[in-house]
Simulated scan of single mutants.
Amino acid sequence: MDLRFSEADEAFRADVRAFLRDNLTEELRAAGRAAASAFSEKEWNIGWLKVLNARGWAAPHWPVEYGGTGWSVTQRYIFDTECALAQTPNLSPMGLKMVSPVIMAFGRPDQKAFYLPRILAGEDYWCQGYSEPGSGSDLASLKCRAVSDGDDYIIDGTKIWTTQAHFANRMFALVRTDTSGKPQEGITFILIDMDTPGITIQPIITLAGDHEVNQVFFDGVRVPKANRIGAEGEGWTIAKYLLVHERSSSYGAGIRVSLKRVREVAGATGALDDHAFRMRLAEAGVALEALTVTEHRVMAAISQGAMMAAESSMLKTQGTELMQRVNELGLEALQYAVMPYEHRWISPGANDAPLGPQEAPVMIAQYLNNRAMSIYAGANEVQRNIMSKLVLGL
């Protein structure tokens, strides 16, 4: 199997690098370097989105008819990789990569015409209303209730771990519209305006000191049935479709950036003098190359029209666990510097410098935040069950 890129693909890579060199300002680059999780602050990811949208590159994976680029699978992979290596701000995936494919596949023509241009332009900022207290990996047990009332649903209940809900003006959510049959059959997918009366957002501060996630409460929230995507009770099918998109991320480039950062800090702190540490660092490098080859294989299969359900679970599992290994190596490297940590040090434009290695605050915050990587988008234990079922038939 020849996994090398063609001359045309390498020419495309050169065009992407030139664009990044000319358009990624120092402020945007600093915000990208300071990102301690999968999400940059809204100010910066919307700023970068607008730069990309002006070039027509905001949604490379969208069909051309909705504003996509028409790029091949390989070109999209190259673009994502180069953005990660350049450390651009992380665009929120909630609108661009998660709810938009659902709207395209299951939405009505008027819903597509209204929402998709607003997502591209950064006019709508989305959050995901899936998990609830007691209903995380077992999502079918969700209890947030939507009761029919004429042309509306009345929603009562709560959602938790709702990333950037405090910034969002819209939520896509799973709600229970029927309790009489199997749990999966009574779930409906609906779009909610976050300014609707009855919605309360309560912050949850993470171990890293970030306000990134929230608990959202619904108390008699009236939502038009016209905001429903698909038929009533079709939410479980739509959710499974969305999760394939959520889990099909490219992990290799981001891990490569983190591993490079760990090597640099380890050299500065003296950690590289430890033979055992060097061995663990080398093992992580080998695992990264294996993951990259797997990403290329999956990319080649997708380009030929293959569906990658089991493979998306595999990449999600291996990618998140390898990132956590690299984060742990980063903490090992920092122990030689006895590093303190202040959350303000990862804020772009902070007016005081961290003590110790300049990269240390981001590395510590990434370690703390990325403990959740193997849980969100379906816990890795669940991913292994999916793989065993789809690949081994167990």
Rank of each mutant, 00 (worst) to 15 (best):
A105S: 10
G95M: 06
L20M: 01
H343F: 11
P89M: 08
F277M: 03
Y341M: 05
V175D: 00
D274Q: 09
T158R: 02
W57R: 03
L191I: 08
G209R: 08
S258R: 15
V257F: 05
R76Q: 12
V362W: 01
R17G: 08
F19Q: 04
L52I: 03
W126Y: 04
A350Q: 06
Q75K: 08
L142K: 00
L91Y: 14
N214D: 06
A309Q: 14
V99K: 04
R278A: 05
A140K: 04
A58D: 07
A105P: 04
N227C: 09
A266W: 00
A11F: 09
G136T: 10
Y241M: 09
T188P: 02
R55H: 07
W345H: 12
K182N: 12
Q164C: 11
L329P: 10
K112T: 11
R247Q: 11
R76P: 07
T162Y: 01
P224D: 10
E321G: 08
A11M: 12
W71V: 03
F277I: 06
N23P: 10
A290F: 14
Q75W: 01
T317M: 07
G393V: 10
R247A: 13
A310H: 02
A59H: 11
I190L: 09
D352E: 15
C83T: 10
Y125A: 03
I155V: 11
I255L: 05
A271Y: 06
L355K: 14
A34I: 07
S6Q: 07
P183E: 06
V216F: 00
K42N: 09
R344W: 08
Y367C: 09
P101D: 00
G198H: 08
A11T: 10
A35M: 14
A379N: 15
S180Y: 10
L392V: 04
F172L: 07
E123A: 11
Q304K: 14
W236M: 06
K260V: 12
E65A: 15
G319P: 03
L85R: 11
T292W: 07
L315G: 01
I192V: 06
R344M: 13
E332C: 10
V326I: 07
G70E: 05
E41C: 10
Q358S: 15
R118V: 08
Q318I: 10
T81G: 06
G186S: 08
L392N: 14
L207G: 13
P117A: 07
Q184S: 11
T25L: 03
Y336A: 09
I160H: 11
T269M: 01
A11K: 11
S248Y: 12
V293A: 12
A86N: 03
Q215K: 13
Y251Q: 04
A290I: 06
G47W: 01
R170D: 04
N369M: 00
A276G: 01
G129E: 01
A360M: 03
E342Q: 15
V391K: 11
K42A: 14
W71T: 01
